[in-house]
Each structure stands twice: as structure tokens, then as C-alpha cells.
Design a binder for these strands. Sequence first.
DNA 1: CTACGGCCATGACAGATGTCATGGCCTCGC
DNA 2: GCGAGGCCATGACATCTGTCATGGCCGTAG
Lengths: 200, 200
Amino acid sequence: MIRVLIADDEDMIRTALAALLRLEPDIDVIAECRDGAEAVEVATRLTPDVCLFDVEMPGMDGVDAAAVLRRTVATRIVAVTRHARPGVLRRALAAGVHGFMPKSRRAQDVAEVIRQVAGGRRYIDPEVAADALADERSPLTDRELDVLRAGAGGETIAQIASTLHLSPGTVRNHVSSILGKLHLRTRQQAAIEARERGWI
Amino acid sequence: MIRVLIADDEDMIRTALAALLRLEPDIDVIAECRDGAEAVEVATRLTPDVCLFDVEMPGMDGVDAAAVLRRTVATRIVAVTRHARPGVLRRALAAGVHGFMPKSRRAQDVAEVIRQVAGGRRYIDPEVAADALADERSPLTDRELDVLRAGAGGETIAQIASTLHLSPGTVRNHVSSILGKLHLRTRQQAAIEARERGWI
DNA sequence: CTACGGCCATGACAGATGTCATGGCCTCGC
DNA sequence: GCGAGGCCATGACATCTGTCATGGCCGTAG
């Protein structure tokens, strides 16, 4: 019997998956969690065979939770996400997940992936893997991504400078460099672009 | 037997809900669709008793599809959404939906809502209804919302002016008025705010 | 060592953006 | 009719933003 913990902040999808998995004869859903922190706490206590983590969760997200669990609990982790961008996959793999599948897959496939991962194998959705291999890395430097992140909410240059402890001029230089590399006109477009590509 | 059509662009949630509903003895899932246009086409052909529409779908969304079907096919419509903002509920009700529930509800509740709606009753999630009644309307005029929409992608004032066939000065005036009403500093923050409140 | 590139900063400049005052046009409610 | 308010526009102004040139500091690859 494969003992599974499910973490997803959206009740409808989490309860639906849990109900479906409970129909499988060899799978037992032993816990449902709403965010990464709760998942880490419960997984530490119950040591499930497989953790099924949604990547997008408030507070500590699924990848963060995977990174923590990886070093403390002998459990295998499947990351599921709505935004299956190459950047997300790379981040998940760096955190040590054993399975990765987008929510564009059918619910019926989840049980099979869980079995694979529980059996010691890895599973990466082939579509996403191909995208990740074809896709070039972000042309932006780490610091430029910091600037983009700090300004993603429509913040002012002055606010970005203050949160990053930089001079406004430096921030403007980073922004200018970003826009040049991305062939865009405004910070906001750059932030949208970066978000869509999974860079931030 | 209640004949149901499900439309949701995310395969995992759609197939999961379909599988669960098929377990119900009195519900028959007769079709699954990926977007609003497909849903309208199929519903017109099959005339299901109840349509379960996700609001967020590419192209024609669930509310648009409901508005079209409402006038052409004798079917009842349940709207489901991740973003259960008052604005979304109002828009859905204006389109003539019979049921409205957020995805923060459990999957098990969906069957019950479908039964209610199939039985001629209406169903509005009480939490969302309470929010909608408590929430005041947008303080922005229609034209100001147009400006916000046109600039939501980080567009330039000049681009907004061009898409709305206005002078740049007029656009700036609208923006200034918006920022004043919302106590914000930049267009982008206003766009984010408006999106979160379901105004655009 | 040297060259290169990332990172930080400054200063000057052009152009974009937001504020304000003002005025015309139109519709709606009184 | 008259006032209020939405809508459009202009012009002037202050500020913000993005560009560019320049230079210093640091770590790494050659």
C-alpha cells in the first residue's frame, strides 16, 4: 500500500484528487494539507511514501517544502503545477523532487506517476522536459531578476531601490539593461514576460 | 438521470471532476470541453440538463459562453471559478447563470449543486454572496476602467491613447483620476488592484 | 597578470508620466 | 432651464523613467 500525502491550497482539486486516489486499490491517502508549511509538519510526523505537492501554494510553496523535506524525511516527492515553465521545472529539480507533472495532464495519470515514483523511479513529464531542454536560459543576471521581482507589483524605482538597498540610479541601470536584452519598452512588460517564462 | 457537460481548460481538474461525477448514480457526464466556444457548440448539439463552466478559460470564457447559451439553449448553467470576487459573481449573474461556486469548495459539493440547479433551484455560494453584498462597487467610471484595461499589460500612455482613439493628455487625465481615487502611485498598481477586485 | 563580466554608482539628458487648471460637449435628474 | 457629472481635450509644470557614458570594485577564466 502506497501511503500518500496531498498538498494543494485549492480545495476542489485537492479533494477531487484525494477521492480519486482513494479509489485505487494500492494507494492510501493518509493526509491532505493546504500549504507548504503544514505539509512539511505533517510529512515529518507521518513519513508518507509519496508527497504530491502543488507548486503554487501561499507562503511556503511546494518547491520550498520539497527542498526542506528532502533533507529531513525519507519520502519521495511529486510536484504538480499549473505553470509548467522550464524555470519551474529547473527549480523543482534543484529542490530534489522525484516526479514533475503539469496540471494539463489527466487526473487519471496521477496514480500512475505516484506508483512510478514510489517504485524508486523518476518521472518528468515529457512535454515539459522537451520545452526545458529547447528553451534557453534567462539572459538576465541574478541582480536584474531581483530588480524585476522587486518591481513586479508596479512599484516605483525609488521603492525598488529602497527594498534592495541600492541607489535609484543603479536600479535604473539594471532596468535599462533588462529592457535592452528583452527588446521591451517598460519595466512592467519585462515583469510580465519574466513571469510568463518562469524566470521570477 | 442528469445529463451534464463540463468545460474547463485545465485537464487535471476537468477529468477529475468528470470521473467523480460519473460515480454518482443520478449524474451522467455526456461531454467535456476545453473552452467556451467548444462548450457552446457542443451544448447546442447535445442540450445537456446542466453545464458546469469554469469561468477562466482562454478565448471565450465561461461567463461569455453562459451569456450566449442562455439565449439559445434550454440548459441550466453552473459557473465555477478560482477567483470568486464580487465582480466575477455579478458578471456571472448578469449572464444568467443558475449556480455559482468557487473552487475553494470541496469537489464533493459539486454533485449536490448540480442536483439543486437541475431541480430548478438556484445556488450561490454563501461566502461569495456575502462578500458581494458587503463590497462596494468600483469607484471608477467606465472610461477609467477602459484605460486601466488598455494599460494592464504594461503598455505606454501613447499605446493606450492609440488603442482607445484618445489623445495622450486625456489618457493621462483618466490615469491621474484613477490614482487619486485609489490612493495609488502608478498605473500598474491600479491595474493590479482592479484585477484583484474583479473590476476588469 | 590581464581581460572580461557582474555589480554598484554618478551625472547628464530626453522623453514619458502624473498633476493641475481650464474649457467645451453631452446627458440625466430636478 | 440649470446644475452635476461623465467625457474629451489642451497647455504648463514637476517628477519619474530610461539611456548613455564613465568609472570603481571584485571574482574568475585564460
